[in-house]
Design a protein around this nucleic acid. Structure first.
Lengths: 188, 188
DNA sequence: CCCGAATGAGACGATGATGTCTCACTCGGG
DNA sequence: CCCGAGTGAGACATCATCGTCTCATTCGGG
């Protein structure tokens, strides 16, 4: 009987990513509930968006924790992070395209997560496994962008869902150029 | 005296990318014109968005032509394409996040451009310079996503504008992993 | 210099979304 | 079984935005 709050937020994120101008009524129907019920749980559109941000930040934070990005080599940590973030890719895509997060001075909680990701790429550079001519800030942005792009591509059936984490990780870590290392992998 | 139509569309794209729910009044102010004038040039919001799509498709088409992507090795063609697309990165970011383009059956003009880009990556694979385990469709999506991410990062001063094309190209083509080839480049 | 085309500011009604409320219904725990 | 919490549907006033219009002003070409 009671409404599944997380389910509503997930549906809302998916809809708003596709159609940012969706009305509260459309959001409610997309979540399979009545508009009145939606208003009972979220005071208004702003409150809904803020709850969306909070949930996204929380979920991505959990992904960061679960990936244990401080352990092992940096490349492996990035792969684990992408794999852990895959289930919340939709939320992350929404967060990434949601600018309001940055408008009123950068968001506190998000900043903390962003710093951790940047630190991961910096560690990779210091360990000698990541290029130095691409800044951690850019690699971080690219990670978000590629995860969002991947989520979007999966939604539109351009990429199979199961391939998404690998596609993102391989591109971010390995790039598109064929090299000796790639060569070996393909002969198996 | 007369309004610079392209300038209005560029400002509109930049604003709508940041805030998709921006009102016509906000768009007009962002472009530095009055709301009445905006309505004189574009019948309504829909017409404005359609003009935005048309301009974006036209500009990206010109970038594709200027890059001569059919000539030379595929990697160089990708670099040229990114360089040519840089001035219209904002428009491209808008196109990419704009879903309406795909709702009523995929857009005609866009499809043509999309096919050309995919063909470029396919050619790279056939020539043996691009990996075969990343599909042309995904590489195409990644190209759009990274250009959009780059434009966004530049707008927020996270990346210098002049570095943007190189950052996108190096990541897409070379990836983040340091390898022998990258090693040599860095010793200069 | 002057006239006309184009613009900005603002008024106006129409329209659609919003937020609140009521009421009947349903489901599930006690 | 029954009661109450939670829900869906809809009515309602309010509000923001839209699209159109008018009018004074400005800019630039002839």
């Amino acid at each position: 009987m009671s409404v599944d709050r997380d389910h509503v937020l997930r549906e809302a994120a998916a809809l708003l990513t596709r159609k940012a101008t969706a009305s509260m009524d459309e959001i409610a129907k997309a979540a399979g509930i009545g508009r009145a019920t939606l208003h009972r749980h979220f005071a208004g559109r702003d409150a809904l968006v803020r709850a969306l941000e909070d949930l996204g930040i929380q979920q991505f934070g959990q992904a960061l924790d679960a990936a244990r990005i401080e352990e092992g080599d940096a490349a492996g940590a990035v792969r684990r992070l992408i794999a852990e973030a895959e289930p919340v890719a939709g939320m992350l895509a929404f967060l990434f395209t949601e600018n309001q997060l940055y408008e009123n001075g950068t968001n506190e909680g998000w900043n903390r997560l962003d710093t951790r990701v940047q630190q991961l790429f910096r560690r990779g550079q210091e360990e000698g496994s990541f290029r130095l001519d691409l800044t951690p800030a850019w690699l971080t942005e690219a990670l978000y962008g590629l995860i969002g792009t991947g989520a979007w591509a999966v939604q539109d059936r351009r990429v199979a869902a199961k391939d998404m984490p690998r596609m993102v990780a391989e591109l971010l870590l390995g790039g598109a150029e064929r090299r000796a290392e790639t060569e070996r992998r393909m002969k198996r």
